[in-house]
């Protein structure tokens, strides 16, 4: 990754492709770094974001380079968090909703679990997205191939 280091200013500047790294993820990673560095963002969220990190403590060339590496790592971690949260949103909403609706009666379920209707998963929310739409995707693929 290309970067520019300005040692007297104690800062490193680098560029991120907005298509790979959405601005929300950059905000998220920047947030984690706020207690360690001063962060300035510039550029265009549709094309390329310019990140400038300025060490709160005096840093040498290697340390500034390391800071950039850590930021990049945090960005990747953040992206993973965002995607996992998005993919699991429905099932998490269901779990919290079921827990709240059923109130505080933790031990009220019958021993054989017969009153646990929600375990039937009528909405299929526990089924991975890929499995759920696999059939449709396969059909569509076949159709596409036929039409070609």
């Amino acid at each position: 990754m290309k970067f520019q280091i300005n040692s007297p200013k104690n800062q490193i500047t680098f560029f991120l492709d907005s298509k790979l790294y959405p601005i929300e993820a950059i905000y998220g990673a920047a947030y984690v770094f706020i207690d360690r560095a001063y962060i300035f963002l510039d550029g265009d969220p549709q094309k390329e974001i310019i990140i400038c990190l300025k060490g709160k403590k005096k840093m040498n060339f290697k340390e500034l380079e390391g800071l950039q590496g850590e930021f990049y790592n945090e960005l990747l971690n953040y992206l993973l968090r965002v995607k996992i949260a998005k993919r699991n949103k429905k099932v998490r909403d269901f779990i919290v909703g079921t827990a709240l609706v059923s109130g505080s009666n933790i031990f009220d379920s019958s021993p054989d679990g017969s009153d646990n209707d929600y375990l039937d998963d009528p909405l299929g929310i526990a089924v991975p997205w890929e499995d759920k739409y696999k059939e449709n995707t396969a059909k569509k693929k076949k159709q596409d191939e036929t039409s070609v």
């Binding site: 905000y27 920047a30 947030y31 706020i34 001063y38 962060i39 300035f40 963002l41 300025k54």
Partner: peptide
Amino acid sequence: EDEFSNYALSLMK
């Protein structure tokens, strides 16, 4: 200036 900029950025979260 640096602290002010950081603070403005933190509000974006």
